[in-house]
Design a protein around this nucleic acid. Structure first.
Length: 569
RNA sequence: CGGGGCGUAGCUCAGCCUGGUAGAGCGCACGGUUCGGGACCGUGAGGCCGGAGGUUCAAAUCCUCUCGCCCCGACCA
């Protein structure tokens, strides 16, 4: 493709609404254009990379035995009401009405639609298993779309759904999908990590996320270098923390005055104790009333763990009024001892084995010291509520966990029978007995993967495409339009490369060399072939890789050969 | 949705505090000089200052309301 005939406009300025580097570079390189918050046009150059990603995903899905189909983007509300998700998904569902005021939504995911199709078509265990996938625009009315394609409201996703007669069959497909996802991200040359994950709103039992490691990732993951354990911090476990306080339980319960000390830092400063001697008391609201959660003062609580322990539908930090009502004190002085009313208390294992803690006294400007479980307060509900972080002990071996940031580019779930039960998607077994089908589902963010690739592959001058995702493989630059020799040779080499089946982009614009080099760096095409008057006078052209920039002068007649060599790696 | 910030030319921004008829750089068009890492000179086009209402002789500027966008939190491929 000749640039002069293409639709590509780069910019020098970084757009004022782009925060992360992949977003900035995609806009500057003329790959995407924003239509509204989280809603983008994929411009021709961007669309090519997106299509490359889709091709890779298709190839691996097909190879893993999945079958492609295309489901509607618009879903009737009735299907979503069958699983209750019309309400559970909440405002994330982009809803609309048709002319008859019937409710519809734009599909954010397709469990309902695919299950509806399957329950009509499939009746027998003999027809199982199968795995259906599509690549389609999804719609989620995100509370906060951001970072360009990283969290968009309309975004391309590959979603697959497998149906089985029983868990063993699901396990096989799940494993095949896991392997296929690994191949996809390896094919893209991305540095990624598969981690244990929380299954979230989609539901189900086991689930794994595929994380591209990047500073700007919105997720945190921990991993163990010794045994390979890796998990999203939402899900991660760790070895029990070493006992924080002495075990003597000799100290007496004493109320101490702590005026204005509403934070852990305030209290440790005032009392001269370490933060791990404090117990943080967090007040949460659930649909079944308030709950207190206790955790060691130097650590954070993992709300996902609390939710699943409580089995709650909704969980949020209590507001000031609720805290006042439940503890009888303003925010900052809550504690488990001497509460004005009976409240459910859940305590983290991190504080179970230790004693002589400091807690809030449930009145303004006061804390207790020397608190001991059993003697001063009875705690019956113990569980793991810890938000694991770097430096914690690996739960599987004696290694130490490292903390990384990651971009969630894929997520696979064992759904079990959650949807098939709600929607009566059943089959008859060989005894003629009816069972709900066992399901799996497998999502992969197309645009997000491309954005993640840029996060991982760029420098101060622009994108450095991994070859498999590059919009074109080779960029031919005619450094000037004024020199007939240069133009003639560049045209010829461009045609030759096309004949070789190479995807080649040709900068044939009448621009100054500096502009062309800057743009070349920005759009990041992996292999560059420069034809300039100076070297051509000596019968040479210049071949280089975007990644290292090292320029090799080669005789014109060897140029194609060298380019092919570089492409081959 | 809570907290913060911003809407002025295609892009990045100044002007606003202290009201007086709209600015710069880049980009774009034309002419000229240039031509291996975003050249230079000249000329020019381009803005109901996000929208509505109000105060005022006079509003980009002050006030009210609205819409949009961005950042921090809960959500997720």
């Amino acid at each position: 493709m000749r640039w002069s005939q293409y639709y590509l406009f780069t910019t020098r300025e970084v757009p004022n609404d782009a925060e992360v580097v992949s977003h900035q570079l995609m806009v500057r390189a003329g790959m995407i254009r924003k239509a509204a918050a989280g809603i983008y046009t994929y411009l021709p150059l961007g669309w090519r990379s997106i299509m490359k990603m889709m091709d890779i995903v298709r190839r691996e899905m097909d190879a893993a035995g999945a079958v492609e189909l295309m489901m509607p983007a618009v879903h009737p509300a009735e299907l979503w009401r069958e699983t209750d998700r019309w309400d559970v998904f909440g405002d994330l569902l982009l809803k609309m009405k048709d002319r008859n005021q019937r409710d519809f939504c734009f599909g954010p995911t397709h469990e309902e639609v695919v299950t509806d199709a399957v329950r009509h078509d499939v009746k027998s265990y003999r027809q199982l298993p199968f795995n259906l996938y599509q690549i389609q625009n999804k719609f989620r009315d995100e509370i906060r779309p951001r970072f360009g394609l990283m969290r968009a409201r309309e975004f391309l996703m590959k979603d697959a759904y497998s149906f089985h007669a029983g868990a063993d069959s699901l396990d096989e497909t799940y494993e095949a999908m896991r392997a296929a996802y690994c191949r996809v991200f390896e094919d893209c040359e991305l540095e990624y990590s598969m981690v244990e994950a929380q299954s979230g709103a989609i539901g189900g039992s086991a689930s794994h996320e595929f994380m591209v490691l990047a500073e700007t990732g919105e997720d945190a993951v921990v991993s163990c270098a010794s045994c390979g354990y890796a998990a999203n911090v939402e899900k991660a476990e760790c070895r029990s923390l070493s006992a924080a306080a002495d075990r003597s339980d000799s100290e007496e319960l004493v109320e101490v005055s702590t005026p204005g000390a509403t934070t852990i830092a305030d209290v440790t400063g005032l009392l001269g104790v370490e933060a791990d001697r404090l117990v943080k008391t967090l007040v949460y609201e659930t649909e079944e009333g308030p709950v207190l959660a206790l955790i060691r003062g130097d650590r954070d609580l993992n709300e996902a763990k609390l939710v699943s322990f409580l089995g709650a539908q909704h969980l949020k930090m209590a507001g000031d009024e609720v805290v006042q009502r439940v503890t009888g004190a303003p925010v900052g002085f809550a504690g488990p001892v001497g509460l004005p009313q009976k409240v459910r208390i859940v305590a983290d294992n991190s504080i179970r084995e230790s004693s002589n803690f400091v807690v809030g006294a449930n009145k303004a400007d006061a804390h207790y010291t020397g608190v001991n479980w059993g003697r001063d307060v009875d705690l019956s509900e113990w569980t793991d509520l810890l938000l694991v972080t770097g430096g914690d002990g690996c739960p599987r071996c004696d290694g130490i966990l490292e903390l990384h940031r990651g971009i969630e580019v894929g997520h696979i779930f064992k759904l079990g029978t959650k949807y098939s039960e709600d929607m009566q998607c059943t089959y008859l077994d060989d005894q003629g007995a009816s069972h709900p089908m066992t399901m799996g589902c497998y999502g992969l963010g197309i645009g997000r993967s491309v954005a993640a690739a840029i996060e991982q592959n760029h420098d101060e001058n622009g994108i450095i495409w991994p070859l498999p995702l590059a919009p074109y493989e080779v960029l031919v630059i005619a450094l000037t339009r004024k020199d007939e020799q240069v133009v003639e040779q560049a045209d010829r080499l461009y045609e030759k490369l096309i004949e070789q089946g190479i995807e080649v982009f040709y900068d044939d614009r009448d621009e100054r060399p500096g502009v062309k080099f800057k743009d070349a760096d920005l759009i990041g095409i992996p292999v560059r072939l420069v034809i300039g008057a100076r070297s051509l006078a000596e019968g040479q052209v210049e071949v280089s890789l975007r990644r290292d920039g090292e320029k090799i002068l080669v005789p014109v007649e060897n140029a194609i050969e060298r380019v092919l060599e570089l492409l081959a790696g």
